[in-house]
Design a protein around this nucleic acid. Structure first.
Lengths: 242, 242
DNA sequence: CGTCTGATTGAACTGATTCAACGGATGTGG
DNA sequence: CCACATCCGTTGAATCAGTTCAATCAGACG
C-alpha cells in the first residue's frame, strides 16, 4: 500500500484519480528483461506501469527485433483487451517493473462510473498512436545522430511530465542495444553516435543516468517538435520543472 | 446519392451499417495530391473514405517527408476530433478522393444510439495503431526488398478485405516516389528494387495496376504475418475472393 | 578471482543514396 | 494536330552512412 501511494505521487493527476477510483489493485512485479506478454497471446487485463521501464517490441522469424515503444511510469498497456483477439506484439520489462493489473470487469465499472476517465484513456491511446507515427518519421527519415537525439529528448520530456526528472537529469536504464533496437540501428553505430553527441557536449550518459545540459540544443539536432506528445491536455501543470 | 450507394457496396458490413445510420452525409471531393488537412490544424469532422486513396504523412523542416499510412475506401480518418487539440500529421489525397464528412454532433448521436458502432470505431483505431507498429518494424528492420514486398502485400490484403481486388490483381495508384516515402527509401532505389521483384516474377506493376501472381511467394519474401491486420473481427466473410 | 553483461574500437564491406541525365507517356494550348 | 511541358519511370557512376565481424575493455557481482 505504501508502495502504491508512493507511486501515485509520481503519476499525473488523471492517473491518480483513476487509481483512486479502483478499490483494490493487483500489484505485480516483473524482473528485468522478462516478457510480460508475448505476441499471439490473449491479454487478460489492462496494465498500468507504476515504476520501472518496459517496452513493446515486434520480431521477425529470423531474430531481427524492433522496439516499437517504451513505457515509463504512468503509462497504460493493453487497453485493447476487449477488442482485439490476440496480441500483435510483445511486452517486455527493461528494468524491474511494478505494475497494476486491472481486470476487465473492474475496468468496465471504471469506465461506466467515470466518463472523464474513459475519455482520458482514449486520449492516452491516441497519444500513443501519435508517438508511434513520430517514431516512424524518426526511423524512416532521420539520420542516426538525429534519431538518437530525438529518442533521448522524447524520453526526457515524457519523464519530466510525470516528474521523474531532476533538473536536466534523469535515470536512463536503456542499454545501447536497446537504443539500437528502438532506432533501427546497430549497437555499434549507436555507440559511435553517442560518443559524438557526448563529444559535442549535447549529452552526458553514463551509469544509467542521462544529463541534457542544453535541451534546446539537443532538440535542434533532433528537429524535435513536441506537438506530437500532446502535452497540453493533461499534465500541462506538470511541465514546469523543479 | 447514387454515388453514395455505389460506395456502400464496396465497404465492409460495419461501414455500411454505420453509414446507413447516418441521415444525410456531407459528401466531399478532393483532387489528387491535395492536402485534406495539415499538421497544426484542428480537424472539424470525422472523415470516411468512400473512393480513392489518401495518406497520412509527417514532414521535417528541411523537407524530408514520411508517409505514415495509407487510407483506402472504407477507412476512417480523424477519429481524434474530440480528444486532441490539433493534428500532429497531415492528410493528403493520392488519387481523386470521395469522402464523407461526419460532424461531431452527428458522430456523438451515432455513438450513443449504436454501441456496436462505437466498438467498431475503437476496433478501427486499434487496427490502425497495429498497422503503424508493423510499419515501424518494416522500416526499422526489413531490407528494401522485404519492405516493398511487405507494403504491396499489405495493401493488396486490405483492398481484398473491402472487395477492391479482382483475383490476384488490383488498382494501385501509388507512384514509386510514394512507395519511397512510405518505406523510407529513395525513389531511385525503389525503382531498382521493383525491377528486381518483377524480374523474379513476384509482381507485375505497370500502369497503376498491380498483379501478384503468387501471393504466398510474395508474403514469404516480406516475412508477412497477417495477424497485425486483425482481419478476424469484422470482414472475415470478405476474406475469400471472387 | 572468474564470469557476465555492456561499452568500445578497428578495419573491411555493402546496401542504399546522390546526382544528373534521359526516356516515355499524357495532356494542353495555340 | 503539332509543340511544349510535365510527371514518372529508368539508368549509370560515384559516394557514403551505417553494417559486419571480431576483438578488447570495464565494471558489477557472487
Amino acid at each position: 500500500m505504501f508502495l502504491k501511494l508512493q507511486a501515485f505521487t509520481r503519476l499525473s493527476s488523471f492517473d491518480r484519480e483513476a487509481l483512486a477510483a479502483l478499490g483494490h489493485l493487483q500489484t505485480q512485479e516483473a524482473q528485468p528483461r522478462r516478457d510480460l506478454i508475448r505476441e499471439g497471446e490473449q491479454p487478460k487485463a489492462v496494465r498500468l506501469i507504476l515504476s520501472g521501464w518496459a517496452c513493446r517490441y515486434k520480431d521477425l522469424p529470423d531474430g531481427r527485433r524492433q522496439i516499437v515503444g517504451f513505457f515509463v511510469p504512468g503509462d497504460f498497456c493493453d487497453l485493447n483487451v476487449y477488442i482485439l483477439k490476440e496480441m500483435d506484439h510483445s511486452l517486455s520489462a527493461i528494468t524491474r517493473v511494478l505494475y497494476a493489473e486491472i481486470a476487465p470487469d473492474e475496468m468496465e465499472r471504471l469506465i461506466d462510473e467515470r466518463p472523464r476517465i474513459s475519455q482520458a484513456l482514449l486520449w492516452h491511446e491516441l497519444v500513443n498512436a501519435s508517438i508511434q507515427r513520430e517514431w516512424l518519421l524518426n526511423v524512416g527519415q532521420r539520420s542516426a545522430r538525429e534519431r538518437i537525439a530525438h529518442l533521448l529528448t522524447e524520453l526526457f520530456l515524457r519523464l519530466r511530465a510525470v516528474r521523474l526528472t531532476e533538473g536536466n537529469a534523469c535515470d536512463f536504464p536503456l542499454t545501447q542495444a536497446d537504443i539500437a533496437e528502438a532506432t533501427g540501428l546497430t549497437s555499434v553505430h549507436v555507440n559511435r553516435t553517442l560518443q559524438e553527441l557526448r563529444r559535442e557536449g549535447l549529452i552526458e550518459l553514463t551509469q544509467r543516468r542521462l544529463i541534457i545540459p542544453d535541451l534546446d540544443a539537443l532538440m535542434g539536432v533532433a528537429m524535435f517538435n513536441p506537438n506530437y506528445l500532446h502535452l497540453d491536455h493533461e499534465g500541462r501543470h506538470l511541465d514546469a520543472n523543479d
